[in-house]
Design a protein around this nucleic acid. Structure first.
Length: 417
DNA sequence: TGACGTCAAGATCCG
DNA sequence: CGGATCTTGACGTCA
């Protein structure tokens, strides 16, 4: 059983993906972006390994315009060495990766050109995983597509188009229930006819339920039978509803108690859980540390990343967590995260925010230039007077942290949450 | 025709 | 000029 996250990692320096607009997508530009993005991918994989995260979704944006303009470029040869390095890291650690074309890859469209582009897109995703030397347990997750006024016809068009895909593509595909069109019952039925495994998405089912009283666990059990030997472990997608955004929108962070409630029901099953959440790796580590004891040192490292974000919310909770981790025999990841969640609910007061910013500034006060000192003090003053945002203060500190390579701060969450 | 979702690029505004 | 804050882009479907 592994818990993972999708596409990008927060507070992992130099791990961002670059892109460009179609009109700037020259060969040189694309190849340079691809090189940069592969470097970023390697940094994310390294981060995952260091932190014991062995489930990860590779972003479709890895190769900009990978299914169209860049499909004609020999990036797999030019970057063969880099791909092989990444491949070795994934395989050596037993990491499982996946990819997930978005809502605009529609295999069952009645429009030929749309289907053709979907095929190209699935070929592209397959090529990435193939180039990394990864077997068919490293999946590509796909939705069924549109309905076009006749769901049965749309389903059969999906099936016939699926059967025309290259077998290398078919072997990797898994089908997922979606937000609006195809609920889990639809997907199970269609997947059965093409022998594809099914990914059950909890939030999609909450928003677009199959009309029966089945609970998450029932659907997860039903989906488990669709996963055969070479497919690897069953996978599910887990996410929670955003507190104010519209139904189906992912939450900022995973609340640990509801997660553990489902997790507790899965104890006799072995499956991989992909989290879909705004704070990505941060919530993945939260869930991992709460279901398995990875030792006090890992937890302390994680606490260190949260420190100033919590100090900014509540000096009291900050002290309480320090106290909690002081006792190496009775420490509890769950308790720590309960306190972190409590703190994150508190609205930020100007006084606490200024206090936290000054703590962060403490890293530089002996080495910063006069200009930097003045810039920070001005910024903080303006924030105190309500003339600028807290994020501006943080951005100022972030630039200084980058300049002085203050890794401890750059690996923490203060600048990002 | 706009909304949907996503994230970075690109454009523009401001001191 | 640099940084903050919009707007656009790229994709297809549906109301």
């Amino acid at each position: 059983m592994q818990i993972g996250y999708a596409c990008l990692a927060i507070a992992v320096p130099e791990s961002g993906l670059k892109s460009c607009t179609l009109k700037n997508a020259t060969e040189d530009q694309l190849l340079s972006l691809i090189g940069h993005n592969l470097d970023s991918l390697e940094k994310i994989i390294d981060y995952n390994i260091r932190n014991g995260i062995l489930l990860f979704r590779i972003s479709s944006d890895l190769i900009p315009f990978g299914s169209s303009v860049a499909a004609k470029l020999p990036w797999q040869n030019i970057y063969a060495e880099k791909l092989s390095t990444i491949s070795n890291k994934i395989i050596r650690t037993g990491m499982r990766v996946s990819m997930h074309p978005g809502q605009y890859t529609v295999l069952n469209s009645p429009i030929d050109s749309v289907v053709e582009r979907a095929v190209q897109d699935l070929n592209y995703h397959t090529k990435v995983l193939d180039c990394l030397g990864l077997g068919p347990a490293h999946k590509i997750v796909l939705h069924l597509g549109g309905v076009y006024g006749d769901k049965n016809q749309a389903k059969s068009r999906f099936i016939s188009n699926f059967k025309r895909l290259a077998s290398s593509v078919q072997k990797r595909l898994v089908l997922e229930n979606d937000n609006t069109m195809y609920h889990i019952s639809d997907v199970l039925e269609t997947a059965a006819t093409v022998n594809a495994p099914v990914v059950y998405d909890t939030l999609h089912n909450a928003v677009n339920p199959a009309d029966c009283g089945c609970a998450d666990l029932d659907w997860i059990r039903q989906c488990s039978t669709t996963w055969k030997g070479s497919d690897g472990l069953q996978k599910i997608h887990y996410s929670q509803q955003h507190s104010i955004k519209k139904p189906g929108a992912h939450s900022e962070s995973i609340r640990i108690d509801p997660f553990l409630e489902l997790y507790g029901q899965l104890e006799d099953m072995d499956l991989d859980i992909m989290l879909e959440v705004k704070d990505k790796n941060i919530s993945a580590l939260k869930c991992i540390y709460c279901v398995s004891n990875r030792g006090i040192r890992m937890l302390e490292t994680e606490w260190a990343r949260y420190k100033y974000s919590i100090l900014e919310k509540s000096p009291e909770i900050y002290q309480a967590i320090r106290q909690l981790l002081r006792d190496k025999n009775t420490y509890s990841a769950l308790e720590m995260y309960h306190m972190i969640e409590m703190a994150s609910c508190i609205p930020t007061s100007v006084g606490n925010a200024v206090n936290a910013a000054q703590h962060v500034w403490g890293y530089f006060k002996n080495k910063a230039t006069e200009t930097e000192k003045r810039r920070f003090q001005n910024m903080l003053q303006k924030y105190s007077l309500g003339e600028t945002s807290l994020q501006s203060v943080k951005n100022t500190l972030l630039l200084i942290a980058r300049k002085y390579n203050e890794d401890y701060l750059l690996n923490g969450y203060y600048f990002y949450i």
